[in-house]
Amino acid sequence: MAGTTDSEQCRILVFASGNGSNFQAIIDAIASGQIPNARITQLIVNRGKAYATKRAEANNIPWEYFNLISHGFQSKSDTDPAKLQQARDNYDAALAKKILESDKPPHLIVLAGWMYIFGEHFLDPISAAGIKVINLHPALPGKYDGVNAIGRAYEDFKAGKLEGNKTGIMVHYVIKQVDRGEPLMTREIEIQQGEELKQLEERIHENEHQLIVEATAKVVKEIMASKAQ
């Protein structure tokens, strides 16, 4: 935002794994003033071909690729559960250290289509530093945790097992339990009779773009208010 100094802005770090459409929604909302007093300082991706990196480049946002296997934390041939867990712990710790030792660590981390589950070796030091972490998930609180949430809701709808024919989306704080952190904002979405899964996915993604912006703006406002005290 023109006319503001870095100390008057909320620094946001975004994590993404794919297309980055929610990342783009945040970029646009900051540019339009819908998310005031904020700037995205960096994008981190864990997939080298993530299109989100193109969006970062187009908007002069620095980005970094940091991957569990490519950066030597885990071998593709590893199958031992203990080794796999140790690799994830080491990756999480290294990523947290990288963030915390940067010149200007973020005030807020937004997981926008980040396909990796963080454990305590990332979340604990980040939390101890006072950095908030939020995540977008295409389901309502307590429903369809984890992967393929939209698909599982749709299957329940077709089977007549989806209460009120409604699923939804939420933005929540990130904790160790997958998709179980305190909800920031939620939105119900009714599945329509005759609707195909792809149509439902498109409607949900449209709503996600709005909700991630509204929730980010809310957290940024809270962060800036606490800094002013």
Rank of each mutant, 00 (worst) to 15 (best):
I134Y: 13
V147E: 08
G164Y: 04
L140Y: 00
G151C: 10
Y154W: 09
N135E: 05
R152V: 04
G160H: 14
F118Q: 15
N148G: 00
G160P: 11
I175K: 06
W114S: 11
Y173L: 06
A159C: 07
V171K: 07
H172I: 00
V147I: 13
L136I: 15
H137G: 11
A112G: 10
G142Y: 01
A128E: 12
I126K: 09
A149M: 06
Y144K: 11
K176S: 14
A128M: 05
Y173C: 00
K166Y: 02
E120S: 15
G168R: 03
G160I: 09
F118N: 15
K143G: 00
A153W: 05
M115W: 01
G160D: 07
F118D: 12
Y154A: 03
H121S: 14
E120C: 01
I150P: 10
H172Y: 05
D145K: 15
K158Y: 00
Y144W: 14
G160S: 11
E120N: 13
T167P: 05
G119Q: 10
P125K: 10
N135W: 04
N165K: 14
N148A: 14
N148S: 13
N165S: 13
A112D: 07
P125G: 13
A139W: 04
G151P: 10
K143N: 12
H121W: 09
Y173R: 01
G119M: 05
F157H: 06
H121G: 00
Y144S: 09
V171D: 11
L136C: 07
K161D: 05
F157C: 06
K158G: 03
I150A: 13
L136G: 09
I117A: 13
N165P: 03
V171M: 13
I150D: 11
K158W: 02
F157Y: 15
A128N: 08
A153P: 06
V147K: 03
G164P: 02
T167Q: 02
A128Y: 07
A153R: 10
A112E: 07
A139C: 04
A159M: 12
V147W: 08
N165D: 15
G119W: 00
A159G: 07
E163S: 12
V174F: 07
L140P: 01
L136V: 09
K158E: 05
I131Y: 08
L123N: 03
A159P: 04
I117L: 15
I126G: 03
N135I: 01
L136D: 04
R152C: 08
Y144H: 15
F118V: 12
M115L: 11
G151Y: 06
N135L: 03
Y144T: 00
F118P: 14
Y154V: 09
A159R: 12
Y116M: 12
E155N: 13
I134W: 14
A149L: 05
A129I: 06
P138E: 02
I169V: 09
V147T: 11
G130R: 10
I117T: 14
D156P: 06
H121D: 14
Y116K: 15
R152A: 09
K132Q: 13
G119H: 08
D145N: 14
